Amino acid sequence: MFGMFGGGGYGGGGGGRFEASYRCYPVSFLDKPEAERGDKIFLPPSALDRLAQLHIDYPMLFQVENRRDGRSTHCGVLEFVADEGMVYMPYWMMQNLLLQEGDVVALRSATLPKGTFVKLQPHSTDFLDISNPRAVLETTLRNFSCLTVGDTIPINYNNKKYFIDIVEAKPGAAISVIETDCNVDFAPPLDYVEPVRQPPQQAAPMAADGPAAGAGAGPSGAGGAGGGAAAEEAPPEEPQFFAFAGTGRRLDGKPAGESRPVAIPAAAVGTASRPATGAGPGSGAASAAGSVGSAAGDAGASGSAPKRPGKVFGGNRLQAKLAEKGAPGAGGAGSGAAARPPAPPKKEEPKKEEEEEEDKWKAFTGKGYTLKG
């Protein structure tokens, strides 16, 4: 009733093309659940006899069509053990064709080119969590004989089922994947959401300097905005010069005292080293005379001051003794300072340990001998 061939009679050649109609049922009716992992169907034994008479090329591929809904796909054949007038196919294939149990489908022999490229699209991002999805896909496609664009195939891995759409295929809409080298590409999953890219944070614009802001604001803004910005800025610190900031060393090798540098403003150093501007020749002469007079006064004051007796050799010893006793002969050296008021007595500083040691030691204090005997 359902078996027909190209021209329409039983046993007709039909130009070597097999065509037949069968009622479809899922492979679970044959108690062969492993067939769900591929795209192969079960045909009745009579279909094998008719295919042998038509000399159909291997592998045997068929086009399965649901003429009621205008859906079609391609598949291979696994065994010829189905009941007459029935075809058993995987349940996922029936879902793609929108078939129910017992619906009529039309089978037609087909010749498909070997595939060179196929693009797949998973339904969920869980498929990307597989450690090696390409290896899993290669293992699964060994149970398939052909792929058709628009189909959804299942992949069972680790007790979980993943669904993948056939998006693109080359060199045709339906290709054979038996003994062929086919390149596989993946499209983003259907539930994949592109992450929102946040724009890079822009750095805050730097505040304009006072003089530049005042100059760009015009004549009125130069005195207002520029002056206010300059007033807010802190005045720069005046550079200072540190005198005696180095380290000192004594000739006798003893440790030197701690140096205490004196901070002198750099402006004061510059003005002291340069003569005052705007002064005439008279002012220069007066300043020179004043410096000479002060130097002479300092010399007279130092000459009138009594000298401390120390280690003297020769004529200086007499002057030292006269200075100690206040002899009138010593006044000649300080006569130049008689017109001046007497200098205040200087406080005697406590002798340091080094001076005490020098005072204790006297040169040429021993007993002398002559060559005459």
Rank of each mutant, 00 (worst) to 15 (best):
F5M: 08
G12A: 14
G14A: 13
R17Y: 04
A20W: 10
Y22P: 00
Y25W: 09
V27R: 04
K32D: 08
E36I: 12
K40W: 01
K40N: 07
L43Y: 09
S46P: 01
L48R: 15
I56A: 15
M60I: 15
M60E: 05
L61Y: 11
V64R: 11
V64H: 10
D69K: 04
S72E: 06
H74S: 09
G85H: 07
Y88C: 11
Y88Q: 02
Y91C: 03
Y91R: 05
M93D: 02
M93W: 03
M94L: 07
N96Q: 03
G102M: 03
V105Q: 02
V105L: 03
S109A: 14
G115K: 11
F117C: 06
T125S: 14
I130N: 06
A135H: 15
V136N: 13
T139C: 13
T152V: 15
Y157L: 10
N158A: 14
D165F: 07
V167P: 00
V177F: 00
V177P: 00
Y192F: 14
R197S: 06
Q198C: 06
Q202W: 03
P211V: 13
A215W: 14
G221D: 05
G228D: 01
A229Y: 05
A230F: 01
E233Y: 07
E237G: 14
P239D: 08
F241L: 11
F242A: 08
F244N: 03
F244E: 02
G246H: 00
G248H: 02
L251V: 00
G253M: 00
A256E: 00
A256N: 00
A256T: 02
P261N: 04
A268H: 03
A268I: 12
A268K: 05
T271K: 14
S273I: 08
S273H: 05
R274A: 11
G278Y: 10
G282E: 06
S291C: 04
S294T: 11
G300H: 02
G300K: 07
G300I: 14
A305N: 10
L318E: 02
L318G: 09
Q319H: 07
A323N: 08
E324S: 13
K325G: 04
A327E: 03
P328I: 10
A333H: 05
P344V: 11
K347I: 09
K351T: 05
E357S: 01
K360W: 01
W361S: 03
G366F: 09
G366Y: 07
